[in-house]
Write a protein that binds this DNA or RNA. Structure first.
Lengths: 405, 405
DNA sequence: TAGACTTTATGAAGTGCTGAACAAAGGAAG
DNA sequence: CTTCCTTTGTTCAGCACTTCATAAAGTCTA
């Protein structure tokens, strides 16, 4: 399969992104990884080197044949910005193509303010202004909620209280930079696929715990978005009939059982933490052996395990990755979660590995930034016009200013 | 995106298959449906017409512009065979490319016999022999269980008691015909995508009820197979903790609550049907208003609704299609199922349509036959060598004998 | 009835990619 | 140390497909 016509730059961008995200790779490596013919890689690398975008590094050790000449991106100016939007704060990071974080800040932000859109644009503008004068490749935005079309970036979020917020279009226009908006768990899944455990897997599940409970689904190497970008919204799967009332109006949602608010509520009710107490206090109580605190975690973990078991049975992933702020206390989740998970699936898939990555705010934002690095691989064209703009910037080494369309 | 190199026959086959499965289409229709340029379609159609594989039908009515000249496949000999394998019988059908059934039989078959492989081959050989002398395009096989690689067709099935049965390779060798083996629900999902409600949807869920409970998942127009072909095995999702013991060793699996055996067991226990009674008797009892019988259906339907609600919340499909033998009694499932389903999902997706198609054995087999017609669209190459062989046969109008590899 | 518009179909020129053949550069075996 | 094998990288002819331009065949509007 090739991409003739006007799609040559997709190939070029994919090669640049692969070199950026994987450190060094030989031409043969590139051909295998991207499914292209060696001939094309040779040819394209020659161009990219002539343009000064790619350079040869050292020679790799041989594995019984001719050793490969490793390649790397020449430009150091290929940076992306990622932001994670929460109801009361925004985390911003600037990353290199390989996912390494150059700088990061967390700022207060009121999602319920009437001026939330312009507020957000202002924060991002200031953050970019603080950096070097190099123009950035693009901005990735992770939001808790459904994103209608990733290209235009219209957001519906119960957690933020946004209805059809035209976030992507506005930011792209105001900042004159490609902006990719996506559900934050999906963004995390993209990051896992590019830099994390998902690199070796085509099918996996990312489960996040924290304020909410979410899931990202990767099938055949691609993130599943569902009919209107609503795939992975497992927070409102019913885990206990006649359970506690959830913010969504239903009863017994897993988020109402294993979300931060639910845990805190229980902890306060049981007197484990004081009235105005925080999650950290609950964790400390559990750490020091408080049986009530441990029981609170255990119940949540067990219910989460049951839900994840259903998903594993349904979609048959190769691994399950657990992430989110909630993993800070994972020691208290681990055993009951795994027990419930293994007990809820058939024998043939009980060996499924569970990988825990305790990422915090910064990592979520890094996930959003990964969206930018992933666009060159986005053959399906999910990101549309914004994706094209990112690729165009990759091509010019981000040093030339781009004409806005 | 194009498919240059050695993949020209994929395009040709896809055009033939599209014409076969959709009746008549103009060149412009083909270009749109297959995502090709009009120029290429013109060019390729010219070839196909010269080879006598395609002919022009009448002229379509104009919709404000030049009317299109409708095309159709010239050969009437493009037939496929589909079979549905159950533990005690096999259903066989012969179909045209458009999915219409030419003939169908159901035969006794013992999946537990030591000679089950050769028995099955014998049945198929006899079935093909009974038909006209035209060689067929290929054979699709639907089995209840996981199929490792659709190309080679190695089957693991708890319901049939098969472990790593090399069904596909054996049949292909013995019968000298391309053989595509797939999980039966996945096959049904393919049929829905080609001929049914799935034609207008890229993301949908197929739920089957009957002896077992299964699911087929279509995301982005493609059937999701999971890491080892085990996606969609929802029968053993836990729907009721501490529920009845299931054949898989777990408790409260949805199959142990809503599968035929479970319903029959309950019906016998409640005295609704006699000791050796059948499903039809349970249904008649419910039809005539027996409250116990109705309650049995209602509980199963409600539990199924809860499980499907989780899946809908998770994968966000556009529609849910219900099928399988169990739909014969759907009137008794309908209300509690829909109630449980709507109650278990968030407001934003409560409008999701539920489509019921009461297909029986023959339709399952037709689903398997649809695998053959779908191979030309199988860009991902799931069917490998067998898929290539099907395409090769399509090209020669199935009139030339094919050299076995 | 003439033009404007829409949609279908085709021909020519150009582009992206592949496959095959070949050269290069190392290790392993005799 | 030569010979074979494996893997990498390059060159080149050829092909599948696309875009662009143009013709064809209708409907709609003035």
């Amino acid at each position: 399969m090739n991409r003739s016509g006007g799609d040559a730059d997709v190939t070029r961008a994919a090669m640049l992104a692969h070199l950026g995200t994987s450190g060094g790779a030989s031409r043969a490596d590139l051909a295998r990884a991207l499914g292209l013919s060696p001939a094309l890689v040779s040819q394209t690398v020659k161009q990219l080197m002539a343009e000064g975008l790619v350079r040869e590094l050292e020679t790799s050790t041989s594995s019984g044949g001719r050793p490969g000449r490793l390649l790397g991106v020449a430009s150091t100016a290929l940076r992306s910005v990622g932001l994670k939007v929460s109801h009361d704060h925004v985390a911003l990071v600037e990353t290199e193509l390989d996912g390494s974080v150059v700088r990061a800040v967390t700022l207060r932000f009121d999602a319920a303010s009437v001026t939330f859109l312009s507020d957000l644009v202002g924060l991002v503008r200031a953050f970019i202004g603080d950096g070097r004068d190099e123009p950035i490749l693009g901005i990735g935005v992770g939001v808790p909620g459904a994103v209608d079309a990733t290209g235009t970036g219209v957001v519906d979020s119960g957690m933020l209280g946004w209805r059809q917020a035209p976030l992507g279009a506005l930011m792209a226009r105001e900042l004159d930079v490609p902006v990719l908006v996506e559900n934050n768990v999906n963004a995390l899944a993209v990051a896992e696929r590019l830099y994390g455990a998902g690199r070796e897997h085509e099918n996996f599940l990312v489960i996040t715990i924290g304020e909410g409970v979410g899931a990202g689904v990767v099938v055949g190497g691609e993130v599943v978005r569902g009919s209107r970008g609503g795939a992975g919204e497992i927070g409102h799967i019913t885990a206990l009939s006649d359970g506690p009332l959830c913010t969504c109006g239903k009863r017994g949602c897993i988020e109402a059982l294993a979300g931060e608010k639910a845990l805190l509520g229980k902890a306060r009710g049981a007197g484990v933490v004081p009235a105005g107490g925080e999650m950290a206090q609950l964790q400390r109580a559990a750490d020091s052996g408080n049986p009530n605190a441990r029981a609170i975690y255990a119940l949540a973990a067990s219910k989460l395990g049951e839900v994840v078991a259903s998903l594993v049975q349904f979609i048959d992933p190769e691994v399950v990755i657990i992430s989110g702020e909630g993993t800070k206390a994972w020691t208290h989740w681990s055993i009951p979660f795994e027990q419930a998970l293994r007990a809820g699936i058939t024998v043939d898939r009980r060996a499924i590995p569970v990988i825990v990555e305790d990422w915090e705010d910064e990592a979520w934002a890094r996930g959003a930034a990964a969206l930018v690095a992933s666009t060159p691989f986005d053959v399906a064209g999910t990101f549309g016009e914004q994706g094209r703009r990112v690729r165009a910037r990759l091509m010019t080494g981000s040093s030339a200013t781009e004409a806005a369309s």
